[in-house]
Design a protein around this nucleic acid. Structure first.
Length: 426
DNA sequence: TGAAATGTTGGGGCG
DNA sequence: ACGCCCCAACATTTC
């Protein structure tokens, strides 16, 4: 029996899933597949919370598929080998999947497509992760935007002009009627994680524009869900109310950085603005350790890092403060901070993480100017005046156990200004 | 999506 | 009444 395979990646849901809907309308029974990618898994610690979330989500999807007489087919392998075996095991007419725009993923998909087409298997990849991808929002001269505000204006213009609903009604009865065993977490070499992804809640952001800077006010917790596709960006935008355009702007930032990474993949390990390449980072490892551990002696910075270490989340305002502190006060290369966040954040997304770190360092497109240096004390006074956030994460603050500031703010500020000024070329 | 330094203004104390 | 000084409050410039 010929089948269509739907390949789950970072779109872990059965509802409003573009490629899945197309697969279900293909006329072939659909085998839903997930590949635990050995290339990725081997880089993760055994208790990685994100892998755990993926696993739990897949188990839940498997349960929903069981209700429809079907199940999820899980493979643990490198993608190429996985597809070799899948193509032997099933008589595949076509593979359906949603596009992923990161360098590793585009390279992988090119190779898999080649492999499948050589076997006379069609490979269909769809836009699903974003509202606008690749070249859909360009300047009038055909080049990609590198400044957010004009990008956003064009994005909104294209969005409002193109409000044609091209979603399709999938035939839900077309799942392949076959039950496959679901793997145990331990068989993948993993163990349950303590850190959990929280459900998202849009009610928390009804007053987003006014409350978004205060780390003790509830957040949407949406980011990990957008990262792994447990909800679609379309489903979120549909539910936004008039007056929530600042929140919509944040979603547009997400697509802004995705298209930056897509058009300028060198930003993965290079300054977007190459004239910043001469900055002499101090890169002191002992300083870096203190920052990672949340022991800088600056309570706002320490609270943020400890929130990250303990929960996999960090409030957006505090991400800016901690990042500015690492790059400017400690003069540590933004790549170090980026790598640390990549390890810890439940919502880690290459394009946003890279774009925002380069923003903080001043090296990015449309970045904070190098002389904009956050004062961690005034940020605390503005955004956590009553120390509620600080006391939650730094209980010893105010006692003799709390360390002195690891650098003097005035000195560090002047040092950053000098170092940047000396390092910036033309 | 900053902060510090510098400049300006105006009220009030005081000789 | 007047000039002078101080300083807070606000505005502008600079990094």
């Amino acid at each position: 029996m010929k089948v269509a395979v739907f390949w789950f990646r970072r779109d872990l849901r059965l509802e409003d899933n573009t490629a899945l809907n197309h697969a279900l309308n293909s006329g072939f029974p659909v085998v839903p597949v997930f590949i635990f990618d050995e290339n990725i898994l081997r880089e993760l610690p055994a208790n990685d919370a994100r892998l755990n979330f993926i696993y739990d989500t897949l188990r839940s999807i498997n349960g929903q598929l069981h209700e429809r007489g079907s199940s999820l087919y899980c493979v643990h392998d490198k993608p190429k080998q996985a597809w070799q075996k899948l193509a032997e095991q099933f008589d595949i007419a076509a593979v359906y999947t949603n596009k992923d725009y990161e360098p590793y993923a585009t390279q992988r998909d090119t190779e898999i497509k080649q492999l499948l087409v050589a076997k006379n298997i069609e490979f269909h990849a769809f836009k699903d992760q974003v509202i606008f991808e690749e070249n859909e929002v360009l300047k009038n001269d055909g080049k990609p935007y590198t400044v957010f505000t004009p990008y956003k204006n064009k994005w909104l213009e294209v969005y409002h002009n193109a409000l044609v609903d091209d979603s399709i009604e999938p035939n839900q009865d077309n799942f392949h009627q076959q039950k496959y065993p679901f793997p145990e977490l331990a068989s993948l070499g993993f163990e349950p994680a303590n850190i959990k992804v929280k459900p998202y809640d849009l009610d928390n952001i009804s007053d987003y524009e006014k409350t978004r800077d205060y780390p003790t006010i509830a957040t949407s917790n949406l980011s990990p869900h957008l990262r792994f596709g447990t909800v679609s960006v379309r489903q979120i935008i549909e539910r936004l109310k008039p007056g929530q355009d600042v929140f919509l702007s944040e979603l547009i930032w997400r697509e802004f950085f995705m298209q930056i990474l897509y058009h300028f993949p060198r930003v993965v390990d290079e300054n977007f603005k190459i004239k910043y390449n001469g900055i002499q980072w101090r890169d002191n490892e002992a300083d870096f350790e203190k920052w990672c551990a949340g022991k800088t002696g600056y309570p706002m910075v320490d609270a943020g890092m400890r929130e990250l270490n303990n929960t996999g989340y960090m409030h957006n305002r505090v991400r800016m403060v901690t990042a500015s502190f690492l790059c400017k006060h400690l003069l540590i290369d933004w790549r170090w901070g980026e790598a640390y966040f990549a390890q810890k954040l439940l919502d880690f997304e290459l394009s946003s993480n890279n774009g925002n770190w380069q923003w903080a360092a001043g090296t990015g497109c449309d970045a904070a100017p190098y002389f904009r240096i956050f004062n961690p004390e005034s940020q605390l006074k503005k955004f956590d005046k009553n120390l509620v956030y600080v006391k939650k994460w730094v209980p010893e603050f105010g006692t003799p156990d709390y360390p002195e500031p690891m650098v003097d703010h005035k000195m560090a500020r002047e040092r950053a200004l000098e170092t940047y000024k000396a390092g910036i070329g033309n």
